[in-house]
Design a protein around this nucleic acid. Structure first.
Length: 416
RNA sequence: CGGGGAGUGGCGCAGCUUGGUAGCGCGCGCGGUUUGGGACCGUGAGGUCGCAGGUUCAAAUCCUGUCUCCCCGACCA
């Protein structure tokens, strides 16, 4: 993409009322636009990042048998009443409205009940199991207070997966597979090393649930970490009984601040019983489905990455989720420079490299600054100076020094 | 929801204490000089000072109400 065609612009200053680092950087660089507290629009650059995160998640969900679908934003009151969760006393984040005929509807803060209700229509026999479905959905939650930029909003994109299995063993197997899938996801997103599977409160169904917690100063959680044993537990379940159960001693643990980037639950058959979600087993008997729920906050992950990977000059996207891999800057408007830059732009794109081409008639300093704040992993400069040497200037966002490279070298380097 | 802070051109801010009809930087338009880390000179456009009442000859400024935003806490499948 040519920058002259991109409508968003970078800014030297961040809005004064935006304190969180992720929002400051993302707004300054033109990835997101704030609509209101806790609600951000994703601009062309931002949606490219979101799509890359989603695609990684999608591939890993598909790999463990997930089937993608998308539920509705509008939800029926009756479905939520079956589990008692329509009540504002039970769920305090509901947005609700009414149809013109007076019918009450809710806006999806979660899709657990509607998904189960939908699956009931299709899952009837043990032959129909196992099933796991997932979606990328915008969740709407009427939070008392939005905070931390895109990390804790009233509107956010979440991947939520739901698994259906015949019994506890089958469920457990899938549950473990999902943990492995989640680990691969965070590795691919570039935050695997700082992300820990963490024991957390499990709700009514099991002793623990598992959270995926990424070390991050802007996070809202505190976990206790045993790096050698790779065991972590949320401070909410930190007590002597649980420490004994997990075989770790309090003094061996390191206290760290983290952001929750995923959470998986075993529902057992509780919800199936509430909602009468059953199948017929081989003996012809009705049996309740074992359910699990598996979430990843897509927009939150983007915020966490923006927080973690940035420096005084701006964002520093991991290779896998950068909106573009290369920032190609042209210095000056002499014909030879324009021709050479246009040619390299075409060649890289033909080679499958995503390039954002700074074809503006701007000064070098401005282009350097924009390449930095946008956080594009690779930077190439085409100038009269570089052409004198018959080559291009190449630099990584994470490295201070540049080097001279030929077009061929760049192509092989960027397509490796 | 409790506590604290803040709303003045697109963005960042000053002006408010002591009322007299709004200013600076960035950005934007035009002209020129520039061109390797956010250039410079000139010249323009752009604001009913969050909103609604009130006091006053006169309100960005004082008073009341209200909305919004941010932070801390509480909350958080």
């Amino acid at each position: 993409m040519r920058i002259t065609e991109l409508f968003s612009k970078t800014s030297k200053t961040a809005p004064a009322d935006e304190v969180s680092k992720n929002a400051q950087l993302l707004i300054r660089a033109g990835y997101v636009y704030k609509e209101m507290a806790g609600a951000y629009a994703y601009l062309p650059l931002g949606i490219r990042v979101l799509d890359k995160i989603k695609q990684i998640v999608r591939e890993e969900m598909d790999a463990i048998g997930g089937q993608e679908l998308i539920m509705t934003g509008l939800q029926r009151k009756e479905i939520w009443e079956t589990t008692g969760r329509w009540s504002d006393d039970v769920v305090d984040v509901w947005f609700k409205s009414k149809l013109q005929d007076g019918t009450e509807v809710g806006f999806g803060w979660s899709h657990e009940e509607p998904i189960v209700e939908m699956l009931k229509r299709y899952v009837e026999s043990y032959k129909d199991l196992p099933v796991s479905v997932y979606q990328f959905q915008t969740k709407l939650r009427n939070e008392l207070r939005a905070k931390s930029g895109i990390m804790r909003g009233r509107e956010f994109v979440m991947k939520d997966m739901y698994s259906c299995n015949v019994d506890a063993d089958a469920h457990e197997k899938f549950y473990q597979a999902s943990i492995e899938a989640y680990k691969r996801i965070y590795d691919r997103l570039g935050i695997g090393k700082d992300t820990y599977v963490t024991f957390a409160s499990g709700g009514a169904f099991t002793q623990f649930s598992h959270e995926f917690q990424t070390i991050c100063d802007a996070g809202e959680d505190i976990i206790y970490l045993h790096r050698e044993k790779n065991i972590a537990l949320n401070e909410e379940v930190m007590d002597d009984e649980n420490l004994t159960k997990l075989g770790v001693k309090r003094e061996e643990l390191e206290k760290v601040k983290t952001a929750e980037v995923g959470n998986i639950f075993n529902f057992g058959t509780q919800k199936s019983e509430d909602m009468d979600f059953a199948f017929t087993n081989e003996q012809g008997e009705r049996q309740f489905v074992h359910l699990g729920s598996y979430g990843i906050g897509i927009t939150r992950v983007m915020g966490v990455i923006a927080e973690k990977f940035s420096d005084e000059r701006g964002l520093v996207w991991p290779e896998n989720i950068a909106p573009f891999r290369v920032y190609l800057a042209r210095f000056g408007a002499e014909e030879a420079v324009v021709v050479a830059a246009d040619k390299l732009y075409d060649e890289l794109q033909t080679a499958g490299v995503e390039v954002i081409y700074d074809d503006r008639d701007a000064r070098p300093g401005e282009k350097f600054a924009d390449a930095d704040i946008l956080g594009i992993p690779h930077r190439i400069v085409v100038s009269a100076r570089s052409l004198e040497q018959g080559s291009f200037e190449y630099k990584k966002r994470t490295e201070p020094e540049s080097s001279m490279q030929s077009a061929e070298a760049l192509k092989s380097l960027l397509t490796a």
